[in-house]
Design a binder for these strands. Structure first.
Lengths: 349, 349
DNA sequence: TTGTAGGCGTTATCAA
DNA sequence: TTGATAACGCCTACAA
C-alpha cells in the first residue's frame, strides 16, 4: 500500500527528462514542434512517473475551463432529465463538461447558482429553468442558450410548438371529431409551449372546426390533475354527450391521466373519445393504450443547444462581439406520432 | 454597451482600498480578523468595482475544488434521474458541485471520464454505473461511494433489497395467494438488487409458500418486455389456471407493463392476479390502477451517499488514511406501499 | 490587525 | 527545436 503519493508535475517530468517545463507543456499542446525522439522520451517519462494532468492549473493559465453551466428547473417531468441526458452526451462531440444546478423555482437561489457557476469561470450557459427573465440572463454577457422557455433577449432552441399544435388538431380532425378540445394550464404567451394553444386554435379556425380550449391549473401533482380532469370529463359528458370528442392534452403525463380515468370508467377507451398528448415521453408508449402524441426531438434540441453555445464561445474567442448581434432562435420540428388513442377503435393486443 | 471589461482581481481591490492582497483574501476567508472599518471599506470596494470571485485560482492555491464526480449509467430508468436530482439538491447542504458523466455501458469511455474527472481535481466520486468493478474503482484511492451496485471494495449506500423482497412476498401472501411468482432479469448476486430475489425466496420458504422465480431477459426495451411478459402470462394461465397468482415484478416499469397486458385482455385486473413492483417510481402511481410497490427512499440514498463521500473527504484532509479502513456500507430501509393491485378487488374511481 | 514573499501547476512571450 | 521567465489569481506561512 503506497502512501498518499504526491502529485507529479511538469517540473518532475522536466527534471527526469532534462527538458524544460516549457517543452513538456509543448508535448501536450503542440507535440509536432518537438523532435520525434524528444516526444518518445517524454512519453516514456509520463508513463514511468504516472503523470496525471491538472486542468485546474491549465485553466488558470489559459482561461479555458471547457465548462458549461446548466440550470434545470426540476426533474419531475421526463422532458428535463431527457434533455439533460442528451446534453451530457454531447461531451463526446464537443468535449465540454457540464456543471448542473436544479433551480427549484426560486429566483434567489438561481441567482446564487449563477454566481457560483461564474466563479468557476464557465464559458457558457444553458438554461431550461423559467424563473429568471431572458433580459436578466442576457445581462450576464455570457454565451447563453435557453431551451423551451421565454427567450426574447437570448439565443434559444425550441420545438416548433405551433406546428405541433396544428398537427395535433389535424390528426384529431382527420378522424372526424364533432368537437376538438385542448386542455392546458394557463400559459405565458412568451413561452414557446404557448404555441401548442395557438397552433391548435388556428388550425381549427382555418378549417371551421368546432373547438374549445380549456385552461385549467394542471401539472402541479398527479392527484390534483386527476381531480381536475375528472371534473373536465363530467362537464364534457354533459355538454357533448354522444358527440365524438377529440382531446389534445398539453403533455403526455396529462394525456395518460385522462386516458386512465376514462378507461377505469368504461373498461376501455370509448369510441367517442380520441386522445393526444405532447412530448413522446415514455408514458405515452407505456400507457394502457399507446397514446398518440406530438414528439419533441429532444436529442436535436439538446445537441443544437450545445452547438449554439459552443459557436458563441468560439466567436467570442475570435474577438467577435457577443452583443450587437440579435439573438438566434433555432427551431426544431416536432414529429407527429399517431398511435392507438386516435384510431377511434381500440383493439386488443 | 460596455466592452468586455477585464476582470477585477484582489490586486485591483487592494490598490483601490490601499490594503494588501492578503487583507482582501482575509476578508473572504476570515473576515473577523479584520477591523470592522476595514471590512466596510473592502465590502464597498467590492461593490463599486463589481468584483466576481474566481474559484479556479482559489483551487489552484488551496487544492479544494469542491467538486464531486458522478457517473450514471443512463437516464431511461427514472431511478437514476431521481437519484441525480437528489444528489444535486445536496448542494444547499454540503456546497459541493457535481461534474456528471453518463457512462453508456462502455468500460473504455468510463475510464476516460474518470481521468477527465481526476484532471479537474475532483475531491470524491459517486458511481451508479455498473461497468467498472469496485476493485478497479478502489484503486483510484479517492473518496468514493457507489449506489445500488457491486460494492465489495468501496463504500456504498444501498436499499435493503432483501427486506424489500420479503415485504413484497409478505404483502402478496397476506392476501392469500395460491402461488407467488417473482419475475426478474438474471442478476449478478453481487449486486444489491439481487436481494430482491433472495428476500422473496427466503420469505416464501420460511413460510412454506408455494413460489417460483422466473428469470427472463427483461428491461431492454418496452416492446421486448411486452413480448416476454405476454408469454409469461400465457404460461401462467395454463399452469396456474383458476389459482390466485401473486406477482412480484423487479421494478415498477415492468409491473406497469404486466398490469397493462392483463388489463387490456380482461378490461380490468382479474381477481386472481395480484401485482407488486419495486421502486415507487411515478409510473406506479400513475398507471391504470395504482400499483403496490416497495419504495426506495431515493432522497436518503442520495443524501447518505454525498454525506459518505464528504466524510471521507474530511477524514482525508485531517490526514486520516482512506485505505486500511474497511469500506462502509450504508443501508436504507425500503418502504412498503400497498395500493390497489394487491387488494384483490379492483374498485372504480 | 495588517503586510511581504513565495507557491499552486500550467501556459505565453521572448529569446536563443 | 528548446529554454528562461513571467504571468494566471488566489492562499499561506511568517513577520511586523
Amino acid at each position: 500500500m503506497m502512501e498518499a503519493k504526491k502529485k507529479i508535475t511538469f517540473d518532475d517530468i522536466a527534471k527526469y527528462t532534462n527538458f524544460s517545463k516549457t517543452t513538456i507543456s509543448r508535448y501536450f499542446n503542440n507535440p509536432d514542434s518537438l523532435a520525434p525522439e524528444s516526444q518518445r522520451i517524454i512519453s516514456d517519462a509520463l508513463e514511468k512517473l504516472d503523470y496525471k494532468e491538472n486542468k485546474v492549473a491549465r485553466i488558470l493559465a489559459n482561461g479555458q475551463t471547457e465548462f458549461i453551466g446548466i440550470i434545470v428547473p426540476e426533474f419531475y417531468h421526463r422532458f428535463f432529465s431527457e434533455v439533460l441526458n442528451q446534453i451530457l452526451s454531447t461531451y463526446e462531440t464537443y468535449g465540454y463538461k457540464f456543471l448542473v444546478f436544479v433551480g427549484n423555482q426560486n429566483e434567489e437561489s438561481e441567482r446564487r447558482y449563477i454566481q457560483e457557476l461564474l466563479s468557476y469561470q464557465i464559458e457558457g450557459m444553458i438554461v431550461l429553468s423559467h424563473t429568471l427573465s431572458s433580459k436578466e440572463l442576457s445581462r450576464l454577457q455570457l454565451p447563453m442558450v435557453t431551451i423551451e422557455r421565454e427567450d426574447r433577449y437570448v439565443c434559444s432552441v425550441n420545438t416548433d410548438n405551433y406546428t405541433g399544435g396544428r398537427q395535433a388538431a389535424a390528426l384529431l380532425a382527420e378522424h372526424g371529431c364533432d368537437i376538438l378540445l385542448h386542455i392546458n394550464s394557463p400559459t405565458d404567451p412568451r413561452i414557446p409551449a404557448y404555441g401548442r394553444i395557438t397552433g391548435f386554435q388556428d388550425y381549427c379556425q382555418e378549417h371551421g372546426l368546432r373547438h374549445e380550449v380549456l385552461l385549467r391549473d394542471v401539472d402541479r401533482s398527479h392527484e390534483r390533475d386527476q381531480a381536475i380532469l375528472q371534473n373536465v370529463i363530467h362537464v364534457l359528458e354533459e355538454q357533448y354527450q354522444g358527440q365524438r370528442k377529440g382531446l389534445f392534452l398539453s403533455n403526455d403525463t396529462l394525456a395518460n391521466t385522462f386516458l386512465n380515468l376514462l378507461f377505469r370508467k368504461y373498461g376501455q377507451l370509448p369510441d367517442d373519445y380520441l386522445i393526444m398528448g405532447f412530448d413522446n415521453a415514455p408514458t405515452s408508449r407505456e400507457s394502457i393504450i399507446p397514446i398518440s402524441t406530438v414528439g419533441q426531438q429532444v436529442d436535436q434540441l439538446a445537441y443544437e443547444a450545445v452547438r449554439l453555445v459552443v459557436d458563441q464561445i468560439n466567436a467570442r474567442k475570435e474577438g467577435k462581439p457577443l452583443h450587437g448581434k440579435k439573438p438566434v432562435h433555432r427551431i426544431i420540428s416536432p414529429v407527429l406520432i399517431p398511435r392507438a388513442t386516435t384510431e377511434g377503435v381500440v383493439r386488443e393486443n
